[in-house]
Write a protein that binds this DNA or RNA. Sequence first.
DNA 1: GCTCTGTTTCGACAATTGTCGAAATATCAG
DNA 2: CTGATATTTCGACAATTGTCGAAACAGAGC
Lengths: 105, 105
Amino acid sequence: MNLEQAARQLESLGNPTRLQIYRTLVRAGHAGLPVGGLQERIGIAASTLSHHLKRLVDTGLVTQERHATTLICRAHYPAMDALIGYLADECCADAGCVASEAAAS
Amino acid sequence: MNLEQAARQLESLGNPTRLQIYRTLVRAGHAGLPVGGLQERIGIAASTLSHHLKRLVDTGLVTQERHATTLICRAHYPAMDALIGYLADECCADAGCVASEAAAS
DNA sequence: GCTCTGTTTCGACAATTGTCGAAATATCAG
DNA sequence: CTGATATTTCGACAATTGTCGAAACAGAGC
C-alpha cells in the first residue's frame, strides 16, 4: 500500500453516496447484492450508481461477479483491511490508539 | 459517527496532499509540527497548505495549538480511531477482517 | 509605533466531480 | 432472430476542488 493508492481508496469512500453503497454491500455480507438491488435500496439513477460502483471496483474495495445478466457486487474485505492497516501504521507511538491497544492486549 | 461525517473525514484524507500532511503529522507524534515545518517537508505553497490544513482541522482529524506566532499541528488520534471503528463496524460477519480477528484473540 | 516572521484570506484558474436522462450494450429465454 | 431485462456508456450540466501568487493579518521584539 502506498500513499497514492490509499488516497484513491479513501477518496472513493469519501463521498456520501459511495460510502452508502459500500456500507450497504458490507451489510449484505458474503451473498452480495446485484446492481439493481443496490439501486432499489439507495434510490439513485442507474447510471449514477454504475458510475460510483466503477470507482469502488477500480480501487479494489468492491468486487463484481456476473451471474447471467445480473452483476453481483460484494465488499472486498482484504482491501479494507489493508487500508485500515495503512492508516493505523505509525499511529501508535502515542497512547489512545485502538489498534495499538488491541495489539498490546 | 454518522455517514455524512465519516464521508467528510474520508474525503479529507482522500487527497494525496492531505494524506501526506496527515501522515507527516502522525510521524511527528505528540510534539506535532508547526505549519512552516510541514511546508518545508512537503514543499507546497503556504496558501495551499493552509487550505488543506483547514479541511483536516474542520473534520476533526487534526488539532492546532497556538504558540506565539507559530501554529503547532497534531494528528488527533481519537478521531482516526472513531473513523476506523466506523469502517470496521458491521464488516465482521465474514472471516478475514483484521479487526474481528484482533477482537477475537 | 514599526518591522519581521508565520499564517491566512483573496481572487483566479483549469480540472475534476456528481448527477441525470437517453441511448447503447449484453445476456438469456423463447 | 426477437424480445425482455440488467447494466453501462454517452453527452451534458452545474458545482466543487486543488493549486498558485499576492495581499492581508497576527503576534513578538526592538
